[in-house]
Design a protein around this nucleic acid. Sequence first.
RNA 1: GGAGAGAUGCCUGAGUGGCCGAAAGGAACAGUUUGCUAAACUGUCGUACUGGCAACGGUACCGAGGGUUCGAAUCCCUCUCUCUCCGCCA
Length: 423
Amino acid sequence: MLQVSYIRENREEVLNRLSVRNFKNPELVDQIIKLDDDRRQTQTLLDSIAAEANAAAKKVGELMRQGLKEEAEAIKAKTTSFKEQTRTIGDKLSAIEILLQAELVLLPNLPHHSVPKGIGADDNQVAFEHGVIPQLMAAALPHWELAAKYDIIDFELGNKIAGAGFPVYKGKGAKLQRALINFFLDNAEAAGYREMQPPIVVNEASGFGTGQLPDKEGQMYHITGDNLYLIPTAEVPVTNLYRDVILKAEELPIKNCAYTPCFRREAGSYGAHVRGLNRLHQFDKVEIVQVVHPDHSYEVLENMSNYVQSLLQKLELPYRVLSLCGGDMGFTSAKTYDMEVWCAAQARWLEVSSVSNFETYQTNRLKLRYKSGDGKPQLAHTLNGSALALPRIVASLLENNQDDKGIKIPAALVPYTGFEYIS
RNA sequence: GGAGAGAUGCCUGAGUGGCCGAAAGGAACAGUUUGCUAAACUGUCGUACUGGCAACGGUACCGAGGGUUCGAAUCCCUCUCUCUCCGCCA
């Protein structure tokens, strides 16, 4: 959520940067400023009436103590009108505040100056490419067929016990999952991230804090009996650890990582491109999250991007880095890099990580601030990224590394799997 | 699941209708002093909104929401959460 004060003071800039996103509703900006004017006026009025009422009440108290009953009663009689007024104006104020809030959450984050203007995925810029596109043998198979051939991932069995999008990993397939999780966690720890193991259900306040609620409610699994949500990403619990927190400046940066299963209903996304591991309702992911001083967040974004790339390099996967254009970025992001790996049998790039700087967009909702010396609390910046999400990594490992003997495990992973081949 | 207790500032904790934005202690920070990995003393020490160039004011917040009252941390109602005991159990 953007700060109203920023919008007021930088109206032109806000409009310019929203246009980078191809934002359809720029008149919202002026509506918000207008509403905030109303809010201020109403607030001032309410405050002055409350001040009068407080003074009168205090006077009554004094008079009572002095035993001047009649004079006290006289003032009491006068104060009754305050009550009515405070109620009316107070109601008006909260109505304005609700409206203002409702409009404010409709404004996406402002893209950073380096974000290219654009409408959709076609306008994203390829910032970097790495690795060699493998040439597969003629009999090469897509990963869902390889998974069946080597009996390592069973989609049918998952259908039976849960439903589509809940695969069962078997034997070396299961062990490969475990190996990847440990590989990612060990690397994150070596890069200075502190491992956290958060709950995989969250309450409503947490869903609001990171922006899943109220609007993206349909994307999360909801446990109605206890009003909890299954997390769509570890970003939600790990970032919410710092909701309503004022940190000391010297506590920054905070670098956390977490492995969790992630649950996504993916309502409405079905079709040819979601076969096999391409899109699941439940998947495993290691997430990295940082809370940083605003002066360093873009430097940190590059670090995080490089870190994610280092993982892909160790896994010897060909990948590219996209600098997302304004129109393709997530609502809450100021700048995002997507990492895509090449899936040789499907012959397509698959997104395996998304690294974003949210600047103050999340922290304004979370009320996550830092304080240096005797200064006022300031909103911190948050960033996060997948490092990494497993299914598509597995998909590309299977497809890219297949040969006539089986699936070759990259050397960096062998200490974790304990085997070199799936055959 | 049954029974009970509780929720106050960074922490502990006092406060049962006006003198309470809130005692006291601790922690933290700044300073003074004693010549030293420490003590003593002094001071500072919540957040948000809002008015003002500023100095300096106003308002709100004692888990959340409502109510009673001229006036609520304090009384009433609802909700949420936490803790203890019993039951069940990994």
